[in-house]
Design a protein around this nucleic acid. Structure first.
Lengths: 183, 183
DNA sequence: GACAGCATGTAATCAGTTACATGATTCC
DNA sequence: GGAATCATGTAACTGATTACATGCTGTC
């Protein structure tokens, strides 16, 4: 069932928190939400038009300075209903993680393949960096116990991503250590 | 950089093990390799034509029964070189895992959201099933220590997927247990 | 003869990336 | 005045899914 256009729900979810322009939404994908989902402005602007045509959002035109027009989008009640339905409806399909490194590994036939140490070491470096980055994010975005329950979902997924990277790093270290010594 | 056409390398990798028809390749995505990558025949047949046009594979026509033609594809030396280059070249981009459930969680604002227990329980069931399935696969495909080093890459990624699901299940259980009691 | 499975292809559509294109505002 | 950033859009292309389309083989 492909992707079933998840972007529309991300936009609805973000607009449900506060009115935003297309530009604001684009920036959101460069920062916070970009940690686990990406979208470019060339995808966002047409999607906004479609959502508005469906009556899920509306916009008002704001003027910046002399004449620069920006469109501030608001979610409608219909939009909120659509968002709620999406969140409430079950998510019975586990999306396969298309990890290119894992794919390459599949075609390595023996544990004596001379490329293995280098391949694993590179991934170890990358995932250790990601782990560090997530650790820093978690402590800056959620410094206190109280802040964690304020934006609970965001806290959960950051913490989940951290745990996942932690597992990945451990697995890479173990696998590297278990390789037969080069000889 | 999008996907950079990984399908071509999967096909090359599979043909590097043995000659196969388009139909065989399609089936491979329903079974073994389908555990972590998907492709339909409508994507495979055109890709085979492109790979052949590039000289990375060739085919011979086989006759089944009276007149059913099948095309048995072989990898060429150029194809093997291309496969090796792909595996050997670094994999510096970590693909973000686009997990729809995680995305939904992001829009849940408080730990008292009444939808949380149900959402987490459903995922727990799904990932526990996946975990069991992977465990069964690992013991049937790699019953002995010796078999593990025979097809080392496949063993590694199955074992990696198992560990990942194991982490996911544990995280879901922990998160469920830590929710405030319903009242 | 019916049916499941073998075998190969194309067409239409959708999601997502990259590139093209334009203009205003703010700060130095 | 120049540069970075704000702000909005379209076009071209790629990767992937779904649907359309056809015919043969082996088994009951």
């Amino acid at each position: 069932m492909a992707q079933k256009n998840k972007l529309q729900f991300i936009i609805l979810g973000l607009l449900n928190q506060q009115p935003l322009t297309g530009y604001d939404l684009t920036k959101a994908f460069d920062h916070e939400i970009g940690e686990f989902w990406q979208a470019q402005h060339s995808q966002i602007y047409p999607q906004l038009k479609r959502l508005e045509a469906q009556g899920l959002i509306t916009h008002e035109v704001m003027i910046s300075g002399e004449k620069l027009e920006k469109k501030l989008y608001h979610i409608t009640e219909t939009g909120q209903a659509s968002l709620t339905t999406w969140i409430t409806t079950g998510t019975p399909e586990l999306t396969a993680t298309k990890d290119e490194f894992i794919l390459k590994l599949y075609f390595v036939r023996t544990n004596r393949d001379p490329r293995l140490p280098e391949m694993l070491t590179e991934q170890l470096r990358l995932h250790a960096e990601k782990l560090q980055h997530l650790q820093a994010r978690l402590t800056t975005v959620f410094p206190t116990k109280a802040s964690q329950t304020e934006n609970f979902g965001h806290y959960l997924i950051l913490q989940h991503a951290l745990g996942r990277e932690n597992y990945y790093v451990g697995w890479l270290q173990q696998t590297l250590a278990a390789l037969p010594s080069e000889s």
